[in-house]
Amino acid sequence: MTDGTAYAIKTGIADPCARSWTFTAQKTMYGGRYIAVGDRLFLFASENEGGVGLVARGVVTATEATPRLTGVQRQTPRVSVSVRRDAPALRRLGRADLKPFDDWNDGRPETELNFKFYRQATDKIVGLSTEAAAFLDGFF
């Protein structure tokens, strides 16, 4: 990792068992735009697209910022990333597991994940706290 920060992505993942993936022009929120080569990335297969939640952990092998459109004032930064899988998830963690954690001020890693991924259900790349990354590491 470049600066000790981990990231997570929630998006459609056609093959959760693949050795690598490329995700193009992904929306970023909560610091997700700072993702860089060498960073750790937790992959969630979006339930909105038939996925099951957490499926893998990987290492970012390439990133490229998507250029902003001219003439559009409010734009969410987007980035394309390539990821090499380093471990499959050994336990389930999805929307139903995180839904009960909705006290936004309790400081729990489960609440952070619920807030960042499911309060606004769009697919995205998000930055994670050290506590949330450690929590997710327990699934591998």
Rank of each mutant, 00 (worst) to 15 (best):
V55E: 04
A133R: 06
F135M: 11
Y7Q: 06
D123T: 15
P16Y: 07
T24S: 08
L90C: 12
M29D: 15
D137N: 15
D123N: 15
F44V: 01
T24C: 03
A89T: 04
C17T: 13
E110F: 06
G58D: 06
G127E: 08
F23Y: 05
G138V: 06
D3T: 09
F140I: 07
N114M: 14
S129N: 12
G32A: 05
E110T: 07
L93M: 09
F117L: 15
A65T: 04
R92C: 01
N48A: 14
P100Q: 10
A62K: 02
V60N: 05
A132N: 07
K27V: 08
P88S: 15
V52M: 09
V60W: 00
Y30M: 07
A62C: 05
T22L: 04
A121H: 11
A25T: 05
R68S: 13
V37M: 09
R119Q: 15
L69K: 12
F115C: 02
D15S: 10
A96Q: 11
A121R: 12
V79Q: 03
G107F: 03
T122C: 12
S20Y: 06
D102R: 15
E131N: 15
A62D: 04
D102K: 14
G50Y: 03
T130E: 14
G71Y: 04
L90D: 10
D137K: 10
R119E: 15
V60I: 14
G107Y: 02
D97L: 00
L98Q: 06
S46W: 01
G32R: 01
E49S: 13
G31L: 05
L43R: 05
R33V: 03
P88V: 10
R33T: 01
G12S: 11
F44I: 09
F23R: 03
R74H: 14
G71T: 02
G107K: 08
M29K: 08
R57F: 10
Y30T: 04
A89F: 05
A132Y: 02
Q120A: 15
T76D: 01
P16I: 07
R78E: 13
M1D: 05
D39Y: 04
P100L: 08
R19T: 13
T130D: 14
F117I: 04
C17L: 11
V81E: 03
D137P: 02
G31S: 07
T122Y: 13
Q73L: 14
P67Y: 01
K116Y: 13
